[in-house]
Structures are given as C-alpha cells and as structure tokens.
C-alpha cells in the first residue's frame, strides 16, 4: 500500500472516530466528548474516564445516540462500498446502487408491507421485505440482461432503468392505494432517515455490512482487471461471469441492508468512491476500504447535521445527500463526457 493510501485510510479512521464521539454527544441533551468516551468505556467493562454528569446522560447515549451513530456508520459504509463495487463491475464511474433497481425494488416491497399492513415477521416485516425486494430486483435485472451467457454492460444498465421505472410505478400504485397514515410512512421511508434507530437494527445490519465489505475486499484485485474490459479480463485469467454474479449479490446485500432501516439515501455510493479515486487512484484494494470509511464518515456527518441543524426537528437525511449528490452527479456527467476514460 502506498504512503498516500495509508495516509488516507489513517486520516479517515481518525476523522470517523472523532466524528462519532462528537456526534454521540450532540443533541437536545449535550454531552461532552470526554464523557461520551467515558460512558462507552464503562459500558464495555473498562472503568476509565468520566461518566456523564447529567442523570439521563448514560441512558440517552446507550439507548438513543449510540445505536443511531453506529447505524449511520454501517449504512454509510455499506452504501459507499456498494457504489465502489458496482462502478468496478460496470466499469463506469457513474454507476450507482440505485441504477440496478435495488433501492426502488426495496422501496416497492416495503410499501406493499406498509399498505397491506403485513406483519408475518412482526416488527421486522418491512426491513425483511425491503431486503427481499432489493435482492429480487437485482437478480432479475441481471438475468434479464444476460444474453448468450454473458452480460453486456449497456444492456444491464438499460434493463436497470426499465426495472426502476416498473418499481416506481408499483410504488406510485401503493401510494395511491394506501390510507393517509400509510402514505406518510412510505414518503418518510423514501426520504431516508435514521430516526428511532434501535440496537436490534444494528444487530441485523452489522453482519451484512461486515460480510459485504469483506467480500468486496476479496474481489478487489479482480475488479482492477475488469477495468480492461470483459475480454481482456478473461485473457488474464478472470472468470468474468462468476465475478460479476458474486459482485452483484454483494451489491444487493450491502444496499438492501442499508435501505432496510434507513430508507433511500442516494448518491453516497457515487460521491465517496469518486473522491477516493481522485486521491489514491482507482485500485480497488484501497478504494473499497477507503470508500467504506469515507461513506461512514460522510453519513455520520450528514446525520449529525440532519438532527441538529434545525432545533426540535429532523431533516430527512436522504434529502440532504441528494441535495449535495445531485449537482455532483451532474458535474461528473459533464466531466466524464469530456474525458475519454469516462464512458465505458
């Protein structure tokens, strides 16, 4: 690993830890960073540092703030790693998890659960359905875009657009069919939010994110070779079809895990890997872990802003990321059109 890559990963880690500590202390009940660290250490059985002075401090941290901050870290890492992975698979820096239809497929499935008040998995029904919806959508996009035993990138992306349109229509139907309460729920889910995060959410998401990022690291070297194009990648020994299938399952897993509890948070997977590439180049062995860290940092900051910018109100975090990500996407589009390496 180059010095630059090491510095980036080290810097991101430090920034992430600092952000998490500060973010956990911010809110209606302010807790200084030292007390946050103290509460955390006491909580994991290390009696060091000061405990929060406020009588509700410890409870607030452990029941409200910590799960939310940890979920922000996990969701950010998942979305960003999924973006890096997908861009590698498609050989196009403009690919985003939303493109293959994971987000809209998941949103549609979740909307069904909300409108028909399905409860066969209890409180987990919505996230489970969202996950299944995302996975089913991704796999069907993949199968539909396969021809003659291989997948043309352009076909894959276009099929993704078509499936996105279908899922969007389904979502609109659910909005139409739902009562006022269901509509409100769907809309908020679509906007994306980490409000009301519980530890159980973290427990569900963490293994998926862990496995997903680990899987992404395993395929990192092959993804570098895929940049040569399908044929040339085969010539240097890559089993392209298997790599693509494995990566798509990883993308679906990471994105669905993120979407399940946090709703649709767009563009994190686009912005972060691109910024990382600008600093350390496109090699996936650095890009994947650095993107995961960067995504975690970005979403932690975005969530901190979302819940503290306006007193006694929560901004939807998905709206914030799109506000920044939309113009960025446009800029990237213009830039890619000019440079030869952009369109692949």
């Amino acid at each position: 690993m180059s010095l630059r890559a090491g510095a980036l990963i080290g810097g991101l880690t430090v920034a992430l830890v600092a952000t998490v500590v500060v973010a956990a202390g911010r809110g209606q009940l302010a807790i200084p960073p030292a007390e946050v660290v103290g509460s955390f250490l006491h909580g994991i059985g290390l009696p060091f540092g000061p405990l929060p002075e406020h009588p509700q401090g410890d409870v607030t941290l452990w029941q409200v703030r910590f799960p939310r901050v940890v979920l922000a870290v996990l969701v950010g890492a998942a979305l960003s790693a999924a973006g890096a992975l997908m861009q590698g698979v498609f050989g196009n820096p403009l690919a985003e998890p939303g493109v293959v239809g994971v987000s809209s497929g998941a949103a549609f499935a979740a909307a069904i659960a909300i409108v028909y008040q399905l409860t066969f998995f209890g409180a987990w029904t919505i996230p489970v359905l969202a996950f299944l919806g995302g996975l089913v959508t991704t796999v069907s996009v993949y199968l539909l875009s396969r021809a003659d035993g291989r997948t043309e990138v352009v076909t894959l992306v276009l099929t993704g657009i078509a499936v996105n349109a279908l899922a969007g229509a389904g979502l609109a139907l659910m909005l139409f069919l739902g009562d006022t309460q269901a509509r409100e729920e769907i809309v908020f889910w679509q906007l994306g939010s980490l409000n009301g995060t519980r530890w159980i959410y973290v427990a569900v998401v963490a293994p998926f994110v862990g496995l997903g990022v680990l899987g992404a690291l395993i395929v990192a070297r092959s993804l570098d070779l895929l940049a040569l194009g399908d044929r040339a990648a085969r010539h240097v020994g890559v089993n392209v079809e298997r790599l693509r299938m494995f990566s798509i399952v990883l993308v679906a897993m990471l994105t669905a895990a993120a979407v399940s509890f946090a709703g649709i948070i767009a563009f994190v997977g686009l912005v972060v890997p691109h910024l990382v590439r600008m600093v350390v180049g496109p090699g996936h062995r650095v890009l994947v872990p650095a993107s995961a860290l960067g995504g975690a940092l970005l979403l932690s900051l975005a969530d901190l802003f979302a819940r503290t910018a306006v007193p006694y109100a929560e901004l939807p975090i998905g709206m914030l990321t799109s506000l920044v990500g939309g113009p960025f996407f446009f800029w990237l589009l213009r830039r890619s059109r000019r440079s030869a390496g952009g369109w692949a």
């Binding site: 050989g91 196009n92 820096p93 070297r221 570098d224 070779l225 895929l226 940049a227 040569l228 194009g229 240097v236 020994g237 890559v238 590439r277 180049g281 496109p282 090699g283 390496g341 692949a344």
Partner: peptide, 16 residues
C-alpha cells in the same frame, strides 16, 4: 480502460 490506472499498473495487470 474503464478507470484511470497508471501505465505501470496496467502493465502489472499482465502478472495477474
């Protein structure tokens, strides 16, 4: 090439 790898990195891909 889909991404901006450096020429030396491209040559090294042959070693994969």
């Amino acid at each position: 090439l889909a991404f901006g790898f450096r020429a030396a990195e491209v040559v090294r891909m042959g070693r994969a």
